[in-house]
Design a protein around this nucleic acid. Structure first.
Lengths: 343, 343
DNA sequence: CTGTTAGCGCGTTCAA
DNA sequence: TTGAACGCGCTAACAG
């Protein structure tokens, strides 16, 4: 098997110089039509293909963006990466993928691999238990632009894309109020999560707008395990003011909560109505899908994160000019309540 | 910001040659301890990191494997890519990812991108409508080893990993027979799919083993859309020998079939029992999950495909020695029936 | 219009 | 034990 033809080889065969070949292949204006066609013809004949690794090497650019996600098997992230890939592909970038499986150590390992591979930029949704941000600092030091999305480290000087849950939560609670519910419970996530704080904020805001008093005992928190959710449900359902509707932290929590309700002889959609946050397309097929859910548009988040990164990459900035106030791009999408047709 | 330090830079500072630095960094035996430590110390100080792209370039190896899948949002494939990534990572390979979205054109585009990026090898599950295999031939011609998995082109001279559905189907039908069912329907996929033929084969085999006669009218096929499945259900339920159990092509079909049954007043798990093939972890949460499903072990398929590819990559063969009879690796896993605890 | 030269960062001879 | 020189494939600055 003859190894892949190079510019040199073409030059040799045509008795011209390598640079002439290079220019001919790039349609450089200063090349004679005759040589140009001769070169291009031979190139086609030999199935010449430029060695990208050589180009990457000398251009100091790989046209690759690294993507680090917690878990692809979560529908949210697989949708997100589709958005990333589509947008990246549209701009001739490829995607180097890594899953942290929500482990800080793995995340760090992947970051270092990505750095080794000289990705042009990085899109990251951080692992749940990542506390130490040293690897992100390394990236900055290495001059690799990074855009975070959805799961964002608690830092100010970063680029990120996120979806604001407040608006969607307000809509959700309003929707339930509109349906006549007056006592609305919320199963929230761990307090330290921004996502949890936003949900609570939305809840309170909606109540205030309706001039209803905010009862903190109606907002309980789950550690997001089945057990945690069961405990939360128990707490809610043992209140004197028992809720007739519940806003669940996400679809997984909603599923567990519904199961708990069913097991305890509650009639879902009669005694107890559920609203959730969209993670699972399949939740429509479940026994009792939530009547509505707050959509976070993962595909779009992925797209926007990629756009943002590409913007940074092409604005060939000196990698660090935090002088300008709008240096750190922060894109915030609004979540939105989607009402399902429960038949 | 000082651009990344190079071997040359270290050499300059230490007044030694670049090759000495290179050797010192690689613990080459012929380097004096003194110079070695001096070099390594300075390297550490400067945060020296070898430029992988330069190494890739001259080694003609990128330590990257390309993965082309139809659709990451299908749980099957996201599990598979986890297997791929884990196994690849264990061997210091990274994963360049591309989704064909089941479109032949996109698949071809991705193949060519992957080739450009000089991936060391490729793992592919082909798009549904891919009929033309020219891009795979290009890969062979380019000397890029490719392992197919699950969705495999109809070619003999390829490496592949697949899961045999016959065994699982036999188990499924046997299971239903054991539960007392005598008339068992099957909603199969399009005839041209190997997957469909294997399911039918398993069905027939199981019937024969039980000395029951095979009634072809009990095996209908769906184009896998909701409408196709509805039609298939109608056909099955209008038979004189009406089935009391149905084996569905996959979880999506099963979901649609169950919905159809419910809508038509059949009592699922009483009048009609469903068995399926596992695609969706969430199917457990549905109103009427299948009582059992045939597992295809996507994670393991991904792992095995990667192992196979790595084997090829490391057995630095001349890329084409189809002389040996076992040149084309064919790994076949057995599917397996998993019985669910329906409460 | 075309050729020559240099250099990207590294590993690897070959020579000292 | 070390250094000098070369090449990997390509682009670009400079020189005709």
């Amino acid at each position: 098997m003859p190894s892949a033809p190079t510019i040199k080889e073409i030059a040799r065969r045509l008795n011209i110089s390598a640079s002439t070949v290079s220019r001919a292949l790039h349609d450089h204006p200063s090349i004679g039509l005759r040589t140009k066609t001769r070169v291009q013809q031979l190139a086609a004949e030999l199935n010449y293909e430029p060695n990208q690794t050589a180009i990457f090497f000398q251009q100091r650019k790989t046209f690759t963006i690294g993507v680090i996600l917690p878990e692809l098997s979560e529908a949210f992230f697989s949708a997100a990466i589709s958005g990333i890939e589509d947008m990246a592909g549209r701009h001739q970038y490829s995607v180097l993928m890594g899953q942290s499986h929500d482990e800080e150590e793995r995340e760090k390992l992947i970051v270092s691999t990505m750095k080794k591979h000289r990705v042009d930029g990085l899109i990251i949704s951080i692992a749940k238990n990542t506390k130490d941000y040293s690897h992100f600092n390394m990236l900055r030091q290495a001059g690799i632009p990074t855009v975070f999305f959805d799961r964002i480290p608690n830092l100010t000087d970063i680029h990120y894309v996120a979806c604001d849950m407040v608006s969607g939560t307000v809509q959700a609670v309003k929707y339930l109020l509109g349906k006549g519910h007056r006592v609305i419970g919320m199963i929230n996530g761990p307090d330290k999560l921004l996502a949890s704080r936003q949900r609570e904020e939305g809840y309170i805001k909606a109540m205030q707008k309706h001039r209803l008093k905010y009862d903190p005992t109606l907002v309980v928190s789950s550690d997001l395990t089945k057990e945690g959710t069961d405990k939360a449900m128990k707490k809610l359902l043992s209140l004197k003011r028992k809720p007739t509707a519940i806003v669940a932290f996400n679809d997984y929590v909603a599923l567990d909560a519904v199961q708990f309700a069913v097991k305890n002889k509650y009639k879902v959609n009669e005694d107890l109505t559920f609203v959730s946050y969209a993670n699972l397309p399949m939740s429509h097929y479940t026994a009792f899908p939530p009547v509505a859910s707050v959509e976070q548009f993962p595909y779009i988040q992925g797209q926007r994160a990629t756009e943002t990164l590409l913007e940074i990459l092409t604005s060939n900035a000196p990698a660090d000019s935090p002088a300008s106030p709008d240096h750190w791009k922060k894109v915030i999408l609004e979540s939105q309540l989607m009402i399902h047709n429960v038949e």
